[in-house]
Design a protein around this nucleic acid. Sequence first.
DNA 1: TATTGTTATACTCTATAACTATA
DNA 2: TATAGTTATAGAGTATAACAATA
Lengths: 142, 142
Amino acid sequence: MPDTVPPDAGDLLEPLARVVRSYYDALTAVATSHGLSGAQARALIALREPLSMSALADHLVCDASNATGLIARMEARGLVRRDPSPEDRRSKVVTATAEGRELALRLRSAMHTVHAALEALTPQERTALLPLLDRLGDLLTR
Amino acid sequence: MPDTVPPDAGDLLEPLARVVRSYYDALTAVATSHGLSGAQARALIALREPLSMSALADHLVCDASNATGLIARMEARGLVRRDPSPEDRRSKVVTATAEGRELALRLRSAMHTVHAALEALTPQERTALLPLLDRLGDLLTR
DNA sequence: TATTGTTATACTCTATAACTATA
DNA sequence: TATAGTTATAGAGTATAACAATA
């Protein structure tokens, strides 16, 4: 008779919170090491493809006026550009500059802290973890 | 021959990010539904026990002047109290009021979104998840 | 009339520097 | 001298309301 009493939800909450915190700490450390706020890092990562101001605000889940200020600061720093849309003269297209794209690349690749932790798992652990994470994500977002 | 090719770290990153995002969304939704900012919620949760201003700033990992403004706003709202320390006349002790403690209770118990998702796992899934979360937390924080 | 983006305004969070009172 | 807390100041992120240009 193995001692496999299933843990209750409370037993899982603490280690889950620890994983979440570590994940966020790693990501914000990367952003600030490149002199970016979290909001700016998120915007830059979203700008893989050019986006209109409203599409960007939707993506960042913030008000359009907020996006205006955010992008204005990033434009002043040379990370993005705002061009008039050729299709709709009300609209503007936000594009990452070469410098912005290069920084975004470093931001993405510099998620290596989290990536390395996942690499350090054994193949068995990885195989076991994947469906559990999928399931948990489904449960949390439904 | 089962198709158990172990997933690489990239395969795990996306579902992990989804879990993390859902977790944070749930927590901030709880805080804002009670009219609290994230910083205020964190402070209130930290104040299970009375703390000095500097101990609170340490806990929140922010500057002391930041804690002054934060606690001043919460004090104006009747959530906390600042009393002179009887031991060190330079120091003040921050204590949650009855209203603040009641709100903190609701904040803690209202983590039910995450809790419910964990409850919805099968006993087998919970048993499998716990050691993996522990291991991942260790890898991320070391 | 509705939409896109901006400006004006205001509040919170955050930090640095200078200050007071106390140790 | 060093520490605890505050104030003054500044900048970033956030939202609401009002506005111009365009659809």
